[in-house]
Design a protein around this nucleic acid. Structure first.
Length: 560
RNA sequence: CGGGGCGUAGCGCAGCCUGGUUAGCGCGCAAGCUUUGGGUGCUUGAGGUCCCCGGUUCGAAUCCGGGCGCCCCGACCA
């Protein structure tokens, strides 16, 4: 029974003062979620219905590829995480029990699931396996934000695959591609499957499922058939006009000009005719000088991948000691390996001279300094990929799929005996999906001035039935009957029979955003009609009262 | 980790700079009348540890110190 007069749906006229993202504002205003603390949210009844609908879609698609649902604990012994080498992760919540034993609140479940599989799986005959669960995940986020988009505690579907080798892992991975494509479609989202960073811990391939929307924290790069996270995207830069070649580098005085902007303006050159020097210090304390075009920016994730190790930008005193005054450093004469970005074409460039108040012009890579080629720049609007101009869109990462390889099976001892009786490591994959993010993305993608407009499959209710008549009126009697009939047809109905004005009811209904709003008023009823508003587009139509329920159900089935 | 901002009724805010009776406003809430197809109008009313602790002062929402909490931007995000 979901009669609004006795339901818990606290709507607000105004959004919370500190809300920024559209989904944050609307989900609070519509009475779907409430904040408990930074990055900690309660799901109120209507919001939880949305969440559960997403969960059910995900569950059905996981089962369809042979997944087996299970459940693993959030609270876990620290020992497991020490063994996998993840105990040091800053985002991992750590705590002690009363006996001072170290415990963690799990952020994912690779350690536990791998331990179970390691203990139980003996033979190649036991593989492959797809295991999954929905569970609360805990992450000590440096900065929770945007309502339910980035929280410290959230429910995630995690699945894990166990295979004999890289080849069969690929099969399990492709099954997930199919399942995830369907999940995103069924949730009614606009989405892209993009190439993703595999991270420092290895892994042999990864994709992310991105839902484009303004509040997205990630950026997807799109060009023709190409789709990648900005973190890994590569492209061809727009060409830049260089100065005429010189026989040898030539010093130009540039007093006080320590920025690309200042030097380019002084010399009347485009930013791209300069080379930017980015000095870094590797984990082992060695220095490197990364050179890229003046109008380009370093993509630190690509750089980290290219280096194969972590790094930090060099401190000013390190720069002064090893190269020259910050703002004037360059590759010529630098006593350290130089990494030259792929975006730098051959030709003469302006670079720092490694001495105060001076730059060099006519510097040619190769002739004037030795280098190693790397692809470490962030692509930018105007770049092309296979001839197609890229565009960059903000997006929410709703899901990700990842080939782990033997990252966890090795430290946790997950092996099997192959058909020749030899012990082999199990090849794993992991696959995450965030229902809360799917819901928030849907809010972002389809909201209008009046509020949320849910995709049909994940709306809190299929129909919001609004009666304008008070108890005892003919309209109310008709609406009561229609409420029952719609439910008998299998529709989930929210029945607004509150003693409130029509304006208030309409505004609340449109804020909540169920696909159909059915209005029973004296005027339309007298005309033998029932009014139906299609929330997407807010157009109104009407059906005859004789078979109103069936007609409404038919309309509902047509909704996006 | 760096920068900025906020904390006063359920929600949104004013008051603070320049200390001084019962701390205000809008919305919401309760009651009555009114209205009944787009937050109707009027009347009455309830509702507050002014984030917490300490200090200054005759007197602190207001000034000072410390703490806690929350938001935004950037960094970070296995």
């Amino acid at each position: 029974m979901t009669r609004l007069s006795s339901y818990f749906l606290p709507t607000e006229r105004e959004p919370p003062a500190d809300a920024e993202a559209l989904s944050h504002k609307l989900m609070v205003r519509a009475g779907l979620i409430r904040q408990v603390g930074a990055g900690l949210w309660s799901w109120l009844p209507a919001g939880w219905r949305v969440h559960q609908r997403v969960v059910q879609i995900v569950r059905e698609e996981m089962n369809a590829i042979g997944g087996h649902e299970m459940l693993m604990p959030v609270l876990q012994p620290a020992e497991l995480w020490r063994r996998s080498g993840r105990y040091g992760i800053e985002e991992l919540f750590k705590l002690k029990d009363r006996r001072e034993a170290d415990l963690v609140l799990a952020m994912t479940h690779e350690e536990v699931v791998t331990t179970h599989v390691a203990a139980a799986v003996k033979s190649y005959r036991d593989l492959p396996l797809i295991l999954y669960h929905f569970q609360v995940k805990e992450r000590d986020e440096p900065r929770p934000r945007a309502g339910v988009l980035r929280t410290r505690e959230f429910i995630m579907k995690d699945s894990y695959t166990f295979d004999r080798d890289a080849e069969t892992l690929e099969v399990s991975y492709q099954k997930h591609v199919i399942a995830y494509d369907r999940m995103m479609d069924r949730c009614g989202l606009e989405w892209y499957r993009v190439e993703a960073d595999v991270g420092m811990m290895g892994g042999t391939g990864a994709h992310e499922y991105m839902a484009p929307c303004p509040a997205g924290e990630n950026h997807v790069v799109l060009a023709g058939g190409y789709a990648a996270n900005l973190e890994v995207a590569s492209g061809e830069p727009q060409p830049v006009a260089l100065e005429p070649a010189l026989d040898a580098p030539e010093v130009v005085p540039t007093p006080g000009m320590t920025t690309i902007e200042a030097v380019a303006t002084e010399l009347g050159l485009p930013h791209g005719a300069l080379l930017k020097a980015f000095p870094i210090v590797l984990d082992g304390d060695e220095m490197r000088l990364v050179m890229l075009r003046g109008d380009h920016r370093v993509n630190e994730i690509k750089l980290r991948t290219a280096l194969g190790t972590d790094f930090r930008p060099a401190h000013p005193d390190e720069v002064t000691a090893r190269l020259g005054p910050p703002g004037y450093i360059g590759p010529v004469g630098a006593q350290m390996p130089i990494l030259l970005d792929d975006g730098v074409a051959t030709g003469g460039y302006v670079t720092g001279a490694n001495q105060p108040d001076a730059h060099l012009r006519g510097v040619e890579p190769g002739r004037d300094f030795r280098f190693e080629r790397v692809d470490v720049r962030a692509v930018m609007p105007g770049d092309t990929i296979n001839g197609a101009t890229i565009r960059i869109e903000p997006a929410i990462e709703v899901g990700n799929i990842f080939k782990l390889g033997t990252r966890y099976s090795k430290p946790l001892g997950a092996t099997y005996l192959d058909d020749a009786g030899h012990e082999q490591l199990i090849w794993m994959g992991c696959y995450g999906f965030g229902p809360a993010r799917a819901a928030a993305a849907a809010v972002e993608q389809y909201a209008d001035e009046a509020g949320i407009s849910w995709p049909q499959a994940i709306a809190p209710f299929d129909v919001e039935l609004v009666t304008l008549g008070k108890a005892g009126t003919e309209e109310r009697a008709f609406a009561d009957g229609l409420y029952g009939e719609l439910q008998e047809l299998g529709l989930e109905v929210l029945y607004d029979e509150r003693d409130a004005g029509p304006g208030e009811k309409f505004i609340d209904a449109e804020l909540l955003g169920c696909p159909l709003r059915v209005t029973i008023g004296r005027r339309t009823l007298g005309a033998g009609e029932v009014e139906v508003q299609l929330r997407r587009g807010r157009e109104t139509t009407s059906v005859l009262i004789e078979d109103a329920a069936e007609e409404i159900a038919a309309l509902w089935r047509e909704q996006p």
